[in-house]
């Protein structure tokens, strides 16, 4: 119990015997388990205030406590059972009515919660609960753009029965993948849970980018001078242009890797972007270049097709 029996009764040391009795009687009314059968905290409070009262009801004991001769702890009562504990298991009262059995700790204020809980549990319980079943899954198909699938996006699908459904496209979604939106399918029967919406996604191709798993591939044309001399150019990525260094003597078909510039799927190592170079001859070569190349060609002994014929012959 509390160290201060006066506080337990809501009193101070100066209280009269009459005040002590009155305070105790009032508190018993709210704390006696048999007078408050629905209050699970009643017994503990009742024990506490009774112990306090036991100490203070007798002026002699009270004086000894006030003088510090005895402390508050000696006054506790042993565990006891209350009448309310008995009324729940058997019929008893002279001339009393029938007593249906009910559960220990029943709280009438729980009636709404109880009813709602039973509704929630109904799925699959069967028997006395009545028929209930989860609703069926509903299937949809959805086309998303290449970049939306690679980067992730929010979109909506319009439902045939009206209304629409917000769909979160996760970054790195692949063509043909199915998204499951839990509980967005058809409603359940008899209080059962709703089914799921299953959305099969097809990804539209992109004019520039392609996917190899989490890597993005792109072909980047370069000029002859950039190929021969090397250069710093801008290459497109799914996140925007990124500067790319072309090494000297780079040929068509050479693949440069931009690390971490591919698809960033959550929980996975980000993919790379693979840039394939394609050397482009000028569409309209000018006089100077033509003359230079005519002269340059005469001095060349290297045959780029040498291996081709040797291996292909």
């Amino acid at each position: 119990m509390s160290d201060n029996p006066y506080a337990a009764l809501g009193l101070t040391k100066t209280a009269t015997q009459d005040e002590i009795k009155k305070a105790y009687r009032k508190l018993v009314r709210t704390a006696h388990p048999d007078l408050n059968p629905d209050d699970p905290t009643a017994a503990a409070r009742f024990v506490k205030i009774s112990a306090a009262y036991d100490l203070l009801k007798d002026p002699e004991t009270r004086a000894r406590f006030d003088a510090g001769e005895i402390d508050a702890t000696g006054a506790e009562r042993p565990e006891r059972r209350f009448y309310r504990d008995h009324t729940q298991s058997r019929g008893q009262s002279p001339g009393g009515g029938q007593r249906p059995h009910f559960d220990e700790g029943f709280d009438p204020s729980d009636i709404f919660a109880e009813i709602l809980r039973q509704r929630g549990q109904a799925g699959g319980a069967g028997g006395a609960q009545g028929f209930s079943a989860p609703g069926p899954d509903l299937r949809y198909s959805l086309q998303v753009g290449f970049l939306d699938a690679a980067l992730g996006a929010k979109t909506r699908i319009t439902l045939p029965e009206g209304g629409n459904l917000e769909v979160q496209i996760p970054a790195g979604l692949s063509d043909g993948q199915t998204l499951r939106l839990r509980g967005r399918g058809a409603p359940g029967f008899g209080g059962g849970p709703a089914g799921d919406a299953l959305i099969t996604v097809s990804v539209r191709p992109h004019p520039v980018f392609a996917r190899q798993g989490d890597d993005i591939t792109v072909t980047v044309p370069i000029r002859i001078d950039e190929a021969v001399l090397g250069a710093k150019i801008d290459a497109p990525t799914i996140d925007g242009p990124v500067s790319l260094t072309i090494p000297k003597g780079a040929n068509s078909g050479r693949i440069l890797r931009l690390r971490g510039r591919g698809v960033k799927r959550s929980g996975a190592k980000p993919g790379d972007q693979l840039v394939e170079l394609r050397v482009m001859a000028p569409t309209h070569p000018d006089q100077a270049l033509t003359e230079f190349l005519q002269g340059w060609a005469k001095t060349q002994t290297e045959d780029p097709r040498h291996d081709l014929f040797r291996k292909g012959a």
Partner: peptide
């Protein structure tokens, strides 16, 4: 107690 029991039932 009777009322509570009936209510619980």
């Amino acid at each position: 107690h009777t009322s509570r029991a009936e209510f619980a039932a």
